[in-house]
Design a protein around this nucleic acid. Structure first.
Length: 892
DNA sequence: TATGTCACG
DNA sequence: ACGTACGTGACATAG
């Protein structure tokens, strides 16, 4: 059975270029990221589709027959970046070397070539797959032709579209896709369509009229502005449809057997792959005549072919040998199981130095003879490198083993090098750094319910491979950190912080279950009452927590107006319910029910489950290598979202108490840290002035935006100004602000304009930072933390806009994160220097929470804000406020 | 496992 | 015209 796969080469290489941001290059310095990304996609496609025939098509030259019809076709397109143009010849060479047919033809686009062949294939009833990211090709779908539409940024994800999926998604046949384009146009190809008609309107019109032509013949059935627009743009609509129509009669000299593909030839493929430095891919290519192995299956075929590592599995008798060897150990890796490191199981440790590997089964550490190993593990002066040592530390801790001396954590390094990188395993890093592949943990252990430790030899061998890879990865990471000027950020901030976080997490915070249960009982009574009331209003009992059932009651049964839809049904979120409240008493009741149900399930029941019986405390886990901006995140439980805004929820905080009698909870939070950072980064005179005089920033903003005196600022003006300030920090858009304030977009746009007129420095910053992102491909915080923004060049407006807002927000949010991290390191040092007993327990983005003994309270009330305010010198003062009490509720 | 909702900064 | 406020995690439902 034959199967043809056709790939839009231009489309895929563009996506690969923006999808793979790693600085890959050939030995002579030519960039290869796009070629690499293309190869990853191709391999995945070969694996998933197993085609018997393949064709990669390209656009040839600039002019096509479409330019004769419309000279502005594809006008205004950004020039292809030179780093990408340079990769076309490399890609073509590689495709050739893989034995895959490629074709391009003067005057025609890749689409036309695919369309012509797809028609032929369909007539022959040959199964055909077309791969592209361009929606235009959906018009080619038919009984035998499926479109794999690329989705998202990933290199592998596709959305299969046959006629049925197209009908489901658009309510159109494949043939009607050109009518859709005719009406809505296509900005990336500069196809005009009908002004004022977007996808929504175009679909509505087509559902009614079927085609562009039929619509134009029946414009008398339209009304108002829409009628005018359509009538005025008849020619444009017809032209646009014509331009979007794929030409299916391209004169093609291709013979079917030229497209045949049965795998690559090792002798021709390997040299080219080596030249491109794609060493890690060599064994993932399906070669003709070789066993057809799954290129993504792990363990990777070649890894096992390499000479096995000399791994010694240590037992009581050979412990002496290991102990002698300890001073040479540089890399350590713990094999652990469990997402929550506070509850992780430790199978064993692999130690490496001087090309020797020792695997220590964890039980062996219980032996009295192993005490030198324990001493070494807890010796802060014995430096250890590894991957996710924070997790190792916690897992060992709860199993009774002390750990210290983390010197280089490869996971943290990877995070600084690219915080949005998805390769979050040692195996993933090996791929990234083009090292020999190694098995993913999942492949060795299985996952979730299927998890099982393999026999000790397999485990030791796998673990040693990881350590081997780390030995190669770490020097590369050191170089990158150096060249990114991140040495301070890494060695003086993130590495020390990692130990501090582990200390905080082990310490935990005491939670009084009686307080929670008492509060829970109150909620319980009220929830029951509200539930009864809702059933009564509804005239029936149903599951209020089910949005589907709730939607049926509100909108079908009670007939309330539908405000918003989700992709699966009616939206019933709080914003919608607020709008519906005037129509029916049930709505307010549901809002109250939702509020209490949330508190009950997440914060009463959820928190009670997390109290550790041995300690009576909750021990959160801070993820230090997760967020795109440099913030921490908190899990198991999340202690960064304990309620505070509404009084009912805020009471939860009363259950967070000191763990020793007579002690106090002390909290200190930065005041307006993000806006202060903005004042510094943007160097805006007005904003700096405001903070130098410690003014109420929202009032000051209102004064300048509305042009009034301080006394004239009313609460509404201040509220608006506050929303504008939030918007500024998030990367402002008129739409976002209008939604937040419930005003029109136009009004929001005016606010923003007035804000920028008053704060010229901020306006300049917002402009400059986007330009910087375009130039460099990334933005930075004050401490040189980076975030790459590949979508800053995206032709899709929404994605590009998002990248622009991110460019504005990340340096602000990220610098604020840098600052509080600095403060934590400094506070930790101060506590140690002075031998204080006070303990840092929590971090909530701009707030630090401590428990302090009575005799240290006065000192801490002074030291803490002092240290926090002095953490980093800005052109405006930092301000930290302290509060304290018998629990977290009181300390605010 | 995906989706909707809602808690926080 | 396009379609969004930035960054997270946990829970319940439903397939």
């Amino acid at each position: 059975m034959n199967k043809l796969m056709m790939i839009d080469g231009n489309n895929l290489i563009y996506r690969a270029f923006y999808g793979i941001t790693a600085p890959l290059q050939t030995a002579d310095g030519r960039p290869t990221n796009a070629v690499y990304g293309f190869m990853l996609m191709l391999l995945r496609l070969l694996q998933d589709e197993k085609p018997t025939h393949i064709l990669v098509t390209f656009d040839a030259g600039k002019k096509t027959f479409r330019h004769d019809t419309y000279s502005e076709y594809k006008a205004g397109r950004q020039k292809t970046p030179p780093e990408l143009s340079a990769q076309f010849p490399l890609l073509k060479e590689l495709i050739e070397a893989l034995g895959i047919k490629q074709y391009e033809l003067e005057n025609y686009e890749a689409d036309d070539i695919m369309g012509t062949l797809a028609d032929r294939a369909d007539a022959e009833k040959c199964e055909t797959v077309i791969v592209s990211g361009d929606q235009d090709v959906l018009q080619l779908a038919s009984e035998h032709v499926r479109i794999n539409l690329l989705k998202g940024k990933g290199v592998g994800d596709v959305l299969p579209h046959g006629p049925e999926q197209i009908m489901e998604r658009f309510g159109l046949t494949p043939a009607q896709i050109v009518d859709l384009k005719g009406l809505m146009g296509d900005s990336s190809d500069n196809i005009p369509g009908v002004p004022g008609v977007g996808e929504k309107t175009a679909l509505k019109l087509l559902h009614e009229f079927g085609s562009v032509e039929n619509l134009l013949d029946n414009t008398d059935k339209l009304k108002g502005k829409q009628k005018e627009k359509v009538e005025e743009n008849k020619d444009s609509a017809l032209l646009s449809k014509k331009l979007a129509t794929i030409f299916r009669e391209v004169p093609l000299p291709l013979e079917w057997n030229e497209l045949a593909y049965a795998g690559a030839n090792r002798e021709t493929a390997e040299p080219v792959l080596r030249k491109l430095q794609f060493n890690s891919l060599i064994e993932k290519i399906p070669y003709a005549g070789e066993e057809d192995e799954d290129p993504f299956a792990e363990p990777a075929p070649k890894a096992e072919d390499r000479a096995p590592l000399d791994v010694r599995i240590v037992d009581e008798d050979t412990l002496g040998e290991l102990i002698e060897f300890l001073p040479d150990v540089s890399v350590l890796h713990a094999e652990t199981h469990g997402d929550n490191p506070h509850h992780a199981e430790v199978a064993g440790l692999t130690l490496h130095g001087q090309d020797r590997y020792y695997y220590v089964p964890f039980e062996l550490l219980r032996s009295p003879k192993a005490s030198p190993v324990l001493d070494w593990l807890e010796n802060a002066d014995a430096p250890k490198s590894g991957y996710d040592l924070h997790r190792t530390d916690l897992a060992l801790h709860w199993n009774g083993v002390h750990f210290a001396g983390a010197a280089f954590d490869s996971q943290l390094a990877a995070y600084l090098i690219d915080p949005t990188e998805t390769a979050t395993t040692v195996s993933g890093l090996a791929v990234k750094y083009e090292l020999p592949t190694l098995a993913e943990d999942e492949a060795v252990y299985g996952r979730l319910t299927k998890f099982a430790w393999p026999d000790v030899e397999t485990l030791a061998a796998h673990s040693a491979r990881k350590v081997e890879a780390l030995e190669a990865i770490i020097p590369k990471q050191r170089e990158l950190l150096e060249s990114f000027e991140m040495n301070d950020l890494f060695y003086k901030l993130e590495m020390p912080l990692s130990r501090i976080l582990a200390d905080m997490e082990k310490q935990g915070i005491a939670v009084n279950p009686d307080d929670l249960e008492a509060l829970g009982s109150e909620f319980e009574v009220e929830i029951k009452r509200l539930q009864g009331e809702i059933y009564e209003h509804a005239g029936t009992e149903f599951n209020i927590n089910s949005t589907r059932q709730l939607g049926e009651i509100l909108f079908d049964k009670l007939g309330l107006p539908v405000k918003k839809k989700t992709k699966t049904g009616y939206s019933t979120d709080a914003k919608v319910l607020e709008e519906l409240a005037p129509y029916h008493a049930i709505v307010r009741t549901i809002l109250q029910y939702r509020q209490l149900a949330k508190l009950q399930s997440t914060y009463i029941d959820g928190l009670l489950k997390e109290i550790r019986p041995e300690t009576g405390k909750v021990h959160t886990y801070y993820r230090q290598a997760l967020t795109a901006t440099g913030r921490l995140s908190s899990q198991y439980p999340n202690l960064q979202n304990i309620p505070i805004r509404l009084e009912e929820g805020r009471k939860i905080r009363k259950a967070f108490v000191p763990s020793e009698p007579g002690w106090t909870i002390l909290a200190a939070d930065y005041s307006q840290i993000e806006l202060r950072v903005l004042a510094h980064i943007s160097d805006d005179e007005g904003l700096k002035e405001a903070f130098l005089h410690d003014m109420d920033i929202h009032t000051k903003t209102a004064m300048d935006v509305f042009g009034v005196k301080k006394e004239e600022v009313d609460s509404n003006m201040r509220r608006s100004a506050k929303a504008v300030n939030f918007g500024i920090v998030y990367g402002i858009s008129d739409y976002g602000l209008s939604q937040n304030l419930g005003i029109t977009r136009k009004q929001a746009a005016e606010f923003i304009e007035q804000y920028f007129a008053a704060f010229k420095g901020v306006q300049q910053y917002m402009h400059d930072i986007v330009e910087e992102a375009k130039k460099d491909g990334y933005v930075k915080t004050m401490l040189e933390r980076r975030r790459y923004l590949p979508d800053i060049h995206n032709r899709n407006f929404a994605q590009r806009s998002f990248a622009e807002r991110t460019a504005m927000n990340t340096p602000i949010q990220g610098t604020a994160a840098d600052i509080i991290k600095l403060a934590m390191v400094q506070v930790d040092a101060v506590l140690a220097e002075r031998g204080l007993k006070s303990r840092m327990l929590l971090q909530v983005h701009d707030e630090l929470v401590f428990e302090v003994p009575a005799d240290e309270l006065e000192l801490m009330k002074k030291l803490l804000p002092e240290t926090m305010e002095g953490a980093l010198k800005l052109s405006v003062p930092l301000k930290a406020d302290v509060s304290f009490g018998d629990n977290w509720y009181e300390a605010k």
